[in-house]
Design a binder for these strands. Structure first.
Lengths: 209, 209
DNA sequence: ACGGTAGTGGAACACCCCGTCCGGTTAGCT
DNA sequence: AGCTAACCGGACGGGGTGTTCCACTACCGT
């Protein structure tokens, strides 16, 4: 656990390295999940392990920084959905885009669902985003298009489920995510004759595996 | 990689140990996935690592033997569905029961989807089962209840997705699986106004992770 | 009862991972 | 040009996992 100076006070080459590390981490974690070793990240970034650890004192820190912008993207997706005049259309767009986002970022779902001990902002952002989704769902229900027994944790359910889908290429992953999202939307749609859903379960924030 | 004599020619104590190991493996892999270490299996079975490896030359072998009966159960679930006079009802039951089965056996999905190099029967059983599902789906489509753009790999998609769902207790896992299955069925149901699904993706048989 | 052999448990091997530290080197800044 | 921050690469410790070695044990037929 070394010192970590503010990124903007770094020497230019150090700054470059930092950016390269983050880029590599995003690609690697996104493609192969959080299991990618730190040394592998360092190797691909053409950097020594020590450099990596000087910039990011722990793997957790690297993961959080690497996915910070995905997290922001996630939030903005939901905000876009909220600002859609048609709440059901907004809701569908959120489901689609979130599934696609997670499809291209295998590790992100794990990070998103994980209970990182040292990432307060990550956690709070997630909570806020979920609250926004709740508001969107409320409107979509009021409009009569979202089934009335939908609950927020259903979206977590779908997210977790989507993360279980593995494809053999990024292109296939995207296809699978799109098809999956479409199926979920169909399942969420309010339809008169449909039977009610079984009761929801409590979904945990799991430790990083 | 040691010799592995036929189970029925074993000495009595060895036979006992073998059974205990299998029982422990089923519970452990079922509850916590294939990540459970061999040592842990041995410890819980009150057996040394060597004993474990004398009976099952590799972890893969243990996994296959442990889930052999789940595999058979899987097959019989599909056959039950096929023999249902109402193909759509049969189809729904298959989805529900398979999701529940996989919910209680975390590791099984991984094993089911995995491309085990040395498990010919496992693979062939899976293929046969999938073919049976295909026949069931054909009938359910003909009856007009299953959406016509359903393809077999959609079931694999749902299976993979279901395996991504994690709960904090077996009871919650079952609840989550039931709710998830209900959502999927709703998505699979043929409904006149529904838009067609995006194209399916090729899903791989992944190596054991 | 007894001896041979299958069976056993614990230590050990080989490998991988995270995180750390250090000697010698490079590259930015002034 | 020189000072210094930053870097590289390798080695190390601690922990984990799949698998094997070996001396000992306990079963079972005679």
């Amino acid at each position: 656990m070394l010192e970590t100076p503010r990124p903007d006070t770094l020497r230019s080459d150090a700054r470059d390295n930092r950016e390269r590390i983050l880029a590599v981490a995003r690609t690697a974690f996104g493609a192969d999940g959080l299991g990618v070793p730190m040394r592998e990240i360092a190797r691909r970034a053409e950097v020594g392990p020590a450099t990596l650890y000087r910039r990011f004192p722990t793997k957790e820190a690297l993961v959080i920084e690497a996915f910070a912008e995905q997290m922001a993207l996630c939030t903005s997706i939901v905000e876009d959905g909220l600002s859609d005049p048609d709440p059901w259309h907004g809701f569908c767009t959120v489901v689609e885009r979130v599934c696609e986002l997670h499809a291209g970022n295998q590790g992100f779902t794990a990070a998103f669902m994980a209970a990182f001990p040292h990432a307060i902002d990550f956690t709070t952002t997630r909570e806020q985003t979920l609250r926004a989704v709740g508001e969107l769902a409320r409107r979509a229900k009021a409009a009569g298009h979202l089934r009335s027994d939908f609950v927020i944790s259903d979206l977590l359910l779908v997210l977790q489920a989507n993360s279980g889908v593995r494809a053999e290429s990024p292109a296939d992953a995207l296809l699978a995510a799109r098809r999956f999202a479409a199926l979920q939307i169909q399942g969420f749609r309010a339809s008169p004759g449909a039977p009610p859903l079984p009761p929801p379960a409590r979904l945990p924030l799991l430790p990083v595996g």
